[in-house]
Design a binder for these strands. Structure first.
Lengths: 231, 231
DNA sequence: TAGTGGTCTAGACCACTAT
DNA sequence: TAGTGGTCTAGACCACTAA
C-alpha cells in the first residue's frame, strides 16, 4: 500500500499516525526537528512531507505555534477539467462536434455582467454540440469577446471546436469555474435528446486575460453525466 | 500583482513567459541548471518553482527529456468540501439541521454495490435536512455501516449531525466524490420546498477505512446552489 | 550512455508570532 | 524575545529515459 521512500515515506508515516489517532485531532504534533531526529533525516525532508499534508488539508502549520492536526479536516478535491475531446477520448469514445449556430449579438445581462463588460457590446455567440460515439454528449453555449481573441475570424469552427482552439491558442490569467444543476432549455433538450426541464449537470467558466474578458461558456452535459474524483 | 520573492518570484517569472508566449506551447524550456544560472539561485529553487507550475498543469516535466510547455493545459480546479455547517457559516448564515428519519434497513442495490457490501446487509439509514437562516439548504441521504463506526449508537444525532460527527471523529483512508445533477424526488422536493423533478445539484461521497466501507451519502442542494472556484 | 529532473543533506538565515 | 516553520544554498547522488 505504502511502498514510498524518502519524503513520501515520512508523509505516509505521518498520515498513518493521523489515521490511527496517535496524533489526535486538534493536538500539536512534534516539531520538524524532533521528527527529523526520529526518522533520521534532514529537517527539510520532514518539512516537505508535512507541507504536503498541510496542502492536503490534514495539518495546520504556523510559525512559532507548531503543527496542529486539523480538527475538522477540509478535504480538497481536485477536479481536472480537460478539453472535451480529450474527455471523450479518454473514456474510449469517438469524438465529434457540430457547430449549431454562429452569430454576433448583444449577450444577456447575466453574461455581460459576469464578464464585466459595458452594455450593448456585441459578442460572438457560438452554440456547439459535442458528441461521443455519435450520441449527444454536451451542449456548449459560448460568448466570445472578439477584441480579446485575434485570429478568430480566420478560423473554420466547423473543423476545430472553439473549445479546443481557445484552450490551445488563447492564454488566460484568471478564470472562474462554477458547477451547478439546471433544467434543460427547449434548445438544449432538442440537441441533447432529453425532455425539456430535465436535470442537466452544467459547468460555467469565465476567463480573463489580465482584466480583459475573453469568454463565457456554459457546458450542459447530457443527463446522467458525472464528475468523479478520488479524495 | 506579483510581489513574490524567492522561489515564488521564479515561478511568477516563468508564468509570465508562458503567458507572453515567450515559452510557446509544446516547446522545451531551458533546463533547471540554465535557469538557476540566469536567475542567480540554486537549482533546487528553480526546481521548486517549476514543480509548482507542473502541479498546476502548465508544464510537463520528464527526466532526460526536459520540461515542456503543455500544449493543451489541463487546468486543475481545486474544490474544498467543507462540513456543511462551516459552509453555511462561511456564507454568513445561521446553521441548523433536522433529523428527518433514522432506521435500519437493507440499502438499495446502487448503494450496496457502490460500497462493495454483500447483499442483505442492513445499514443505518439517516435522512437529514440542513438549513441556512431557516431556509432549506440541502437534503442529506446517508447510509452508514454500523460495524465500521463504533460509538454511533451512543450518539444523539439531533444535536450533532452525522455529517459533522463523522468528519470529526471517523477517519477514512479512501474516498470517492461524484458531482452530478438529479431531478428532485418527491421527498427531496417536500423538504427543500421545490417542485418534484426540479434540477438539483447533488454531491455523492463514499468513504472507506482501509477496505471497510464506512458510509455512502448524497447531498442534494436546494435549487440554485453553485460550487464555484477560481482556476 | 549521457542528459535531465527528483531528492536528500547539513547548515544557515529569515519571517512570523505567542509570550 | 525566543521558538517554530519557511526557504535558500551548494553539493551530491539517484532514477528515469531518449538516443
Amino acid at each position: 500500500m505504502t511502498a514510498a521512500t524518502g519524503w513520501q515515506a515520512i508523509r505516509d508515516a505521518a498520515l498513518a499516525r493521523l489515521r490511527s489517532g496517535r496524533w489526535a485531532p486538534g493536538t500539536l504534533i512534534p516539531t520538524e526537528a524532533e521528527l527529523a531526529a526520529e526518522f533520521g533525516c534532514a529537517r527539510a525532508t520532514v518539512n516537505r512531507a508535512l507541507r504536503d499534508l498541510a496542502a492536503a488539508g490534514y495539518l495546520d502549520r504556523r510559525r512559532k505555534s507548531g503543527t496542529r492536526v486539523v480538527p475538522h479536516p477540509v478535504r480538497k478535491a481536485t477536479l481536472t477539467i480537460p478539453v472535451i475531446r480529450k474527455e471523450v477520448e479518454g473514456l474510449g469514445g469517438t469524438y465529434a462536434h457540430v457547430l449549431i449556430s454562429r452569430a454576433t449579438a448583444v449577450p444577456p445581462t447575466a453574461v455581460r455582467s459576469a464578464l464585466g463588460l459595458p452594455a450593448d457590446r456585441p459578442l460572438l455567440h457560438l452554440c456547439t454540440l459535442h458528441r461521443a460515439d455519435g450520441a449527444a454528449y454536451a451542449h456548449e453555449d459560448r460568448w466570445l469577446n472578439p477584441e480579446a481573441v485575434p485570429g478568430l475570424d480566420r478560423l473554420d469552427l466547423t473543423v476545430t471546436s472553439a473549445n479546443e482552439w481557445l484552450v490551445g491558442q488563447v492564454p488566460y490569467t484568471d478564470g472562474r469555474l462554477s458547477l451547478s444543476a439546471a433544467a434543460a432549455s427547449p434548445e438544449e433538450a432538442r440537441h441533447l435528446g432529453c425532455a425539456p426541464g430535465a436535470a442537466l449537470f452544467t459547468v460555467e467558466r469565465i476567463t480573463w486575460l489580465q482584466r480583459r474578458p475573453i469568454t463565457w461558456v456554459r457546458l450542459s452535459y447530457a443527463p446522467g453525466h458525472r464528475l468523479t474524483t478520488d479524495i
